[in-house]
């Protein structure tokens, strides 16, 4: 497989996983938790590195899940003590991120882990760090990790599809009929964390937020059905990843930056042109707000 093909496959896997997870981030109105977790997983990765001395593999995922859940838990705790939700998010994630940054500059030193890399990712190096798989041959480690995480995300979304739906739409009803909305919240935060950690190498902590939120927000504008929103969102994620790569090649610019930019273009096109909720269709039809009021 060629160098370019591996980059595109890797980026597409980021688009797929982030697209699926992003739908529920939007519907659960926790989009900014993605921003928080994308920063705090840095702490988990650094801690995992301090234990294992490598920046890949299952330990890194476990570190990421741990720090992601810690973030969710601390944000919730601070909020329940009377701090506003967005403020408590801002306090927790910057603090945990800062600890990660300090650890990188003091304890990690010369490792293949620096702040620039953490924030922006470095997809161009991914095809060089490979591992050998029976039958398939040599595969980049990051691609393999992203593929495993995509499978995990897919299985969890399908297995708990109705639970995700009900806890996103009406958590009170869910609890009253015996579906543990709080446990589902933490499970979801764990999924956000693994997706973020796995995408980290490819696109970095800042761009992963674009991959999580923007394709899902665009998909939301095209459909009234959850299943179709999931499919569209992952499709937009993949298309943004691929087109972003070619934009980067064309402009000789940052790959992760171009991919994030590309998700923005998908959103703008949807925002203006979608037949149901787009700006153009709103000019032609009376607003829906009039119909829903009594």
């Amino acid at each position: 497989m060629t160098y370019t093909a591996w980059i595109i496959i890797t980026a597409s896997l980021v688009g797929l996983s982030c697209g699926l997870i992003g739908v529920f981030l939007i519907l659960r109105k926790t989009a900014m938790m993605a921003d928080a977790i994308s920063h705090t997983v840095l702490l988990g990765i650094v801690l995992a590195f301090l234990v294992t001395n490598e920046v890949s593999g299952p330990m890194m995922l476990i570190g990421g899940i741990g720090s992601g859940l810690l973030t969710a838990f601390l944000v919730q705790s601070l909020h329940s003590l009377g701090v506003q939700h967005d403020a408590s998010m801002g306090i927790i994630f910057t603090t945990l991120f800062a600890i990660g940054v300090i650890l990188i500059s003091t304890s990690v030193g010369n490792a293949h882990l620096d702040i620039q890399h953490a924030l922006m990712g470095e997809i161009t190096f991914i095809p060089f760090d490979t591992t050998h798989l029976p039958l398939i041959g040599s595969v980049p480690k990051a691609t393999l990790l992203l593929f495993s995480v995509f499978l995990i995300v897919l299985v969890f979304i399908i297995a708990f599809y109705k639970e995700w739906k009900i806890t996103s739409f009406d958590p009170a009803l869910a609890v009253s009929i015996g579906i543990p909305a709080l446990a589902m919240h933490y499970l979801f935060m764990a999924l956000v964390s693994v997706t973020t950690v796995a995408s980290f190498d490819a696109v970095g902590a800042i761009m992963v937020v674009a991959m999580l939120i923007t394709p899902a927000s665009a998909a939301y504008l095209w459909t009234d059905r959850l299943a179709i929103m999931l499919i569209l969102s992952s499709l937009f994620g993949v298309l943004a990843a691929i087109s972003g790569y070619y934009i980067a090649v064309f402009l000789d610019a940052s790959i992760s930056g171009s991919m994030a930019f590309s998700t923005g273009i998908f959103f703008m096109v949807s925002f203006i042109g979608s037949p149901k909720h787009g700006l153009l269709s709103k000019c032609r039809r009376p607003s829906r707000a009039n119909q829903t009021s009594i």
């Binding site: 519907l27 109105k29 297995a159 708990f160 109705k162 639970e163 739906k165 009900i166 996103s168 739409f169 009406d170 009170a172 009803l173 869910a174 009929i177 015996g178 579906i179 939301y220 459909t223 009234d224 059905r225 959850l226 179709i228 929103m229 829903t292």
Partner: peptide
């Protein structure tokens, strides 16, 4: 208490009342 812009239809919302009976997975 809920977001009526959620991507779902009336029948689906009513079906949610049965999710407790349907069981996991």
């Amino acid at each position: 208490s809920v977001d009526w812009d959620f991507p779902t239809d009336a029948l689906d919302v009513v079906t949610m009342g049965l999710y407790g009976d349907i069981g996991w997975f």
